[in-house]
Nucleic acid binder design. Sequence first.
DNA 1: TATGATGCCTACCGACTCTAGGTATCACTA
DNA 2: TAGTGATACCTAGAGTCGGTAGGCATCATA
Lengths: 111, 111
Amino acid sequence: MAKEKAELLQGTLDMLILKSLSLGELHGYGIIQRIRQLSDEMLNVEQGSLYPALYRIEQKGWVSARWDVHETGREAKFYKLTRTGRKQLETQEASWDRLVLAITKVRQATI
Amino acid sequence: MAKEKAELLQGTLDMLILKSLSLGELHGYGIIQRIRQLSDEMLNVEQGSLYPALYRIEQKGWVSARWDVHETGREAKFYKLTRTGRKQLETQEASWDRLVLAITKVRQATI
DNA sequence: TATGATGCCTACCGACTCTAGGTATCACTA
DNA sequence: TAGTGATACCTAGAGTCGGTAGGCATCATA
């Protein structure tokens, strides 16, 4: 991982994928680019992390996939958020917020 | 895990332990209590998570340990942040801040 | 022609947290 | 006095997940 890239914590990748798909259908490689772009280059998801994650997420029914050809003429596998996936995204965002809040409390402690 | 407890993400436990020790020497069981208390009961560290984590952290030289008797008359193993540990805490807090910032950016995206 | 970007995938590793057990002491209560 | 819950330590094993490293194909560009 490049020196300036923030490393992902286990459990955050799913949320990032779901979030990027909530903005519209995307193929795998595009998810990586979207996350990198939206995070101002701070987050770099490795392909070896993404594809297994997509598989897991699809198994859980949070996304649906189909092969298609995009405007450049290349084939790619497009993923789309399902209704369940959208709910899951909300759940994960809420958990994230709780965790950030809790950790903030601990860090503010000065006793 | 109780329904209202936020689950820990892998990688956050070290920071919480180091932070709680930065407020003063503590024994293992006390670390759990301090984290729970400081987080307003939102974070509950399991013993099976804590003790191995303390061992790892001690191996890395971030804390030093000694057996002692505390005011209640009971024996306990007291942990103290080392200079290296304090540096590590700063590093981990900075990483955490970067990650939170990056994820916030992604989540704010609306395209 | 070759290199880099795009696009997909898998196998294996390493790190970490949790569950579930075990042991012992102490205070309190039925 | 027997039992229970809190305090205090520990370990083994399982499961999850992200990263590394590899492979393959296409396309544009140098």
